[in-house]
């Protein structure tokens, strides 16, 4: 697959430029489900894309599915409750482990143990991340086996409609919003499997859910230290980059300690910050022309020269 990942579009728009750079003609199919009941409010987007747009209304379709298929709705809700619970338990474990890591780092500073202790702490956190990811994935697989969503008549009908719309477009655009809801709807309709040779334009939360992992982050929240956390596997429509949108609000790029921690913790991917209007193109696992985007490096520094 090829396409572009973009930062938020509220203050500086780059959708038209990105879609031009990707070089695919024709109308665009839009996923705006992250905005839930506000998904229909897409009036500005055709102007920003300078293209015609079809809203796939995945959120609304999901609501219809739940209304038509109460058994499925019940199973879905119960899985969501389980996910919320284990996310909370994971977060509690993470916070304690992180506190311990900070305490140990302070005590071990300057001692012979310093380097080893730092490495142990990081490995422990990465293990928590991985175990959580595995647990969520296992839960999802069990649920899919039990409910067989794609075989349910209501979902199958919507998928047919979606397939038809997607055949007529060359580009799929995925907006941000609530990333758990967005990912949920994309999975509900087996969206990845409906894609053919489409180009992808995904911004902010949309860029996050299309990555291999979805990482929730905000380093200066009004409450707490702002420890990032893994939500679950993403759609994996692109590889090698963990998109971190809106760094001006959410990251502390001038804090080498935090930058280094993020980069090392999620080291299997490149942590890339996408500010308002920034975008980077990809073709399979090649990344190009990182316009404004910033790579977070393990040594705590950042670089704007990271894509070819």
């Amino acid at each position: 697959m090829k396409g572009a990942l973009l930062g938020p579009q509220q203050l500086k728009q780059s959708l038209a430029a990105a879609v031009r750079a990707v070089g695919r003609e024709g109308p665009i199919a839009l996923v705006n489900a992250g905005w839930q009941e506000r998904e229909e409010q897409d009036e500005e987007l055709p102007g920003l894309f300078e293209r015609n747009l079809v809203n796939l209304r995945l959120y609304e379709r999901g609501e219809k599915v739940f209304a038509e298929d109460p058994d499925f709705a019940k199973a879905h809700r119960s899985r969501q409750d389980q996910l919320r619970q284990i996310q909370e338990y994971y977060r509690l474990r993470l916070e304690r482990t992180f506190d311990a890591a900070l305490d140990i780092a302070r005590k071990a500073a300057g001692s012979d143990f310093e380097a080893d202790e730092l490495r142990f702490s990081m490995e422990q956190i990465q293990r928590l991340d991985q175990e959580h990811l595995d647990r969520v994935t296992a839960l999802r697989e069990a649920y899919e086996l039990q409910t067989r969503p794609l075989e349910r008549p209501s979902i199958a009908r919507h998928r047919k409609e979606l397939e038809k719309i997607l055949k007529a477009v060359g580009v799929v655009a995925i907006a941000g919003g609530h990333v758990a809801v967005l990912l949920n709807r994309l999975r509900l309709f087996g969206f990845k499997e409906l894609l053919g040779d489409h180009a992808l334009i995904a911004w902010s939360g949309g860029a996050m859910v299309t990555a291999e992992r979805v990482v929730l982050f905000h380093e200066s929240p009004p409450e707490g230290f702002g420890i990032s956390e893994v939500l679950e596997q993403g759609l994996g429509l692109h590889h090698g980059v963990l998109p971190l949108p809106n760094p001006r609000l959410r990251l502390k790029l001038d804090d080498p300690l935090r930058v280094g921690w993020l980069a090392r913790r999620y080291a299997t991917e490149k942590c890339v910050a996408l500010d308002q209007g920034d975008y980077v193109r990809f073709d399979e696992d090649q990344w190009f022309g990182a316009s404004g985007t910033v790579l977070l490096k393990a040594d705590g520094t950042v670089s704007t020269e990271w894509a070819s």
Binding site: P8, G176, G177, G205, P221, E223, R250
Partner: peptide, 18 residues
């Protein structure tokens, strides 16, 4: 106000990315 309101009513910043 920020500390108080956000403590009593935490916002969706963990989940929502505009």
């Amino acid at each position: 106000l920020r500390e108080g309101l956000a403590w009593l009513f935490p916002g969706p910043l963990r989940m929502v990315y505009e």
